[in-house]
Simulated scan of single mutants.
Amino acid sequence: MAFSKLHIVLFALLALTFFREYIGAEFNNVKFSDVPINPNVEFHYILAFAIDYTTSSSSSPTNGKFNVFWDTDNLSPSQVSSIKNQHSNVKVALSLGGDSVNGGSCYFSPSSVDSWVSNAVSSLTNIIQEYHLDGIDIDYEHFHADPETFAECIGKLITTLKNNGVISFASIAPYDDDDIQSHYLALWKSYGHIIDYVNFQFYAYDQGTTVSQFMNYFQTQSSNYGGGRILASFISDGSGGLAPQNGFFTACSRLRNQGKLGGIFVWSADDSKALGFRYEKQSQALLAAHP
């Protein structure tokens, strides 16, 4: 019994130290080495995005055959290896889907559960191994499939990749929208036990969100994704949610003191580059500090 209590305490402490940042979607030459890395947090870069669409200008769905859509000139396999070799606390993941592809909405469009999972496992294993990656993130935001189909496809994908030793962690990135939540909550209900982090997009709430509103939103989503490690989040360009300069770190400190803060993630390094990554530094300093 003492061991289990100790394990819970250690898990709680570790849960405070996760910092994650999306990178590479906007092709503005941001590099891994541009982003400040605090050695006292576990730092995850999330490459955005791998998408099961063709790479031609008139992209179309490929039923789970993923291609790389991030800035490979600056975020190549050798650069992944380099940043991980330089920093023992760094892991790198890739995110699936995203909002758009070549100017149009990016849809989750499986032909069937089995065919999509088979194609996804094969294509993603190749990409993950080529790029020396550690995990995946699920960020589909438009669907040509019902919630149950989405849940089975993604759940079986994560299960297989973990069982095959291809990835060590997985996250999801929902936000507060009825269609989005119906799909991700179905996934959570059936497969929440294999999902390690919930990158909830709190910046999708209205611009000008207050600290008290943010705290309420966080509580609501913690209930929706019960038992999950929920990360607080902000968007670098300040276009939505609770901005860093308007109380985001106050809210995070309160959550941490309550033992509820699973970490912080940012969208995205591409936009933060122009700001000198000041809020990344502040986020990591807060996470690294003792409560």
Rank of each mutant, 00 (worst) to 15 (best):
A2H: 13
F3N: 02
F11Q: 15
A15H: 06
E21R: 08
Y22G: 15
G24F: 03
N29T: 10
N29S: 13
K31H: 07
N38P: 05
P39C: 04
L47P: 04
A48G: 01
T54D: 03
T55E: 02
S57D: 13
S58M: 03
S58Q: 11
S59E: 11
F66C: 03
N67P: 04
N67G: 13
V68F: 04
T72F: 08
D73C: 01
N74I: 06
Q79P: 06
V80A: 03
Q86H: 02
H87M: 12
S88L: 06
K91I: 04
S95D: 05
S95T: 10
G97L: 02
G98H: 06
D99V: 10
D99C: 04
G104E: 15
F108C: 01
P110N: 03
S112V: 12
N119K: 00
T125C: 07
H132Y: 14
H132M: 10
D134S: 10
D139M: 01
Y140V: 11
H142L: 07
H142C: 09
F143A: 07
A145E: 13
A145W: 12
P147F: 13
E148S: 15
F150Y: 15
E152L: 14
I154M: 15
I154G: 12
L157E: 02
L157C: 01
L157T: 04
V166F: 01
I167R: 02
I167E: 02
A170K: 08
S171Q: 06
S171N: 02
S171L: 03
I172Y: 00
Y175N: 02
D176K: 09
D178I: 14
H183A: 03
H183C: 06
L185N: 09
L187I: 13
K189E: 15
H193K: 14
I195H: 06
N199I: 08
F202R: 09
A204P: 01
T209S: 10
Q213S: 08
Q219H: 05
T220A: 10
N224R: 14
I235N: 12
I235L: 14
S236A: 13
S236G: 11
A243M: 10
N246T: 15
N246G: 10
F248C: 07
C252I: 12
R254G: 08
R254D: 13
R256S: 06
G262I: 06
G262P: 08
F265Y: 10
W267E: 09
A269R: 05
S272F: 05
L275A: 01
F277P: 08
Q282S: 11
A285P: 01
L286Y: 06
L287Q: 11
L287R: 10
H290L: 12
